[in-house]
């Protein structure tokens, strides 16, 4: 990472002595000023503001300090040990929630739910649905429960490992599965991951590669009519696509598409049954991304 010039540090110090502490994460004076304003708005005690800035200098995530992250119209509580919701996830969840039918009751299951941000937003926007959330981490389970209670969005939260014990999870079948699985491969983790993420966010929610997508094809596709999975790179998208096109039965029944985020990076692999489902997913998910199969 490019070092911060001493001249910039000096200039920042002249504006506010706390700013140089924020520069390692924010990189520019404007961004640091913005962040300091946010901290000062949410933390009233001056001593605590200083403490927060000191922690920020050591790359501690801002969301853990302030205790929340906005996610669509919701303000989701964040705690150390549980992955902070990303803007990319917010973006596709909002876009998906806008496409889902409001007047129908159907079942949604979110796997690897973490804070519960995805199911909370979906339930908030489609109150008639029953929404299930699954996570194996006890911290995530607790936090998702807390979020569900404080935001008054009822969820059914299940503490189970989806790789090991997917067969024990009820309900057996749902209409839609969403998931933001850990998708950073071990090989790129050290090189490409930001320091604040590497040091302070749970590896359990970050490290993974194809296993969750294999698990999707093996265990979950038979139990759902549609799925939306977040991905880290194109190879994960193609893994799902190739598994589906490589299987005669799946290839006939399923349609697969990819979606990019607003930075142009591949972010979603999604799929739905071409026919025989309760909802018409082909029309619901039209223009959600680009169809590949």
């Amino acid at each position: 990472m490019v070092r911060i010039k001493p001249s910039v540090l000096k200039k920042a110090c002249q504006i506010n002595p706390l700013l140089p502490l924020l520069l390692p994460e924010c990189r520019t004076i404007e961004a640091a000023q913005q962040e300091l304003r946010w901290i000062q708005n949410e933390v009233s005690d001056k001593k605590r503001v200083r403490q927060c800035c000191m922690l920020r200098a050591r790359h501690y995530p801002l969301q853990y300090l302030l205790g929340s992250q906005p996610f669509g119209p919701l303000d989701v509580t964040c705690q150390p040990g549980v992955l902070i919701p990303r803007w990319e996830t917010e973006e596709w969840t909002v876009s998906l929630a806008e496409k889902l039918p409001r007047d129908m009751a159907f079942d949604i299951m979110d796997l690897c739910t973490g804070t519960g941000c995805i199911p909370l937003l979906l339930k908030q926007m489609c109150p008639k649905c029953s929404v299930f959330a699954v996570d194996r981490s006890p911290l995530a389970y607790k936090l998702a429960t807390r979020n569900s209670n404080t935001l008054q969005v009822p969820l059914k939260i299940i503490k189970k490992d989806i790789l090991e014990r997917s067969s024990e999870i009820v309900p057996r079948t749902v209409d839609l599965i969403t998931c933001n699985p850990p998708y950073i491969p071990r090989t790129t983790f050290a090189r490409e991951t930001a320091r604040s993420v590497k040091l302070f966010e749970p590896k359990l929610a970050l490290l993974g590669n194809k296993e969750f997508y294999a698990n999707l094809v093996d265990c979950w596709m038979s139990r759902t009519d549609a799925f939306v999975y977040e991905v880290g790179d194109l190879s994960q998208c193609y893994y799902v696509l190739n598994r589906v096109t490589g299987d005669v039965d799946l290839s006939r029944k399923w349609r697969i598409g990819f979606r990019h985020d607003s930075c142009g990076r591949p972010r979603i692999v999604y799929g739905f049954r071409a026919s025989g489902s309760r909802l018409n997913w082909a029309s619901i998910l039209v223009k959600f991304g680009d169809m590949k199969h």
Partner: peptide, 9 residues
Amino acid sequence: PGGQKINKC
């Protein structure tokens, strides 16, 4: 990089 690799506020 984006997604889980970075935590932008």
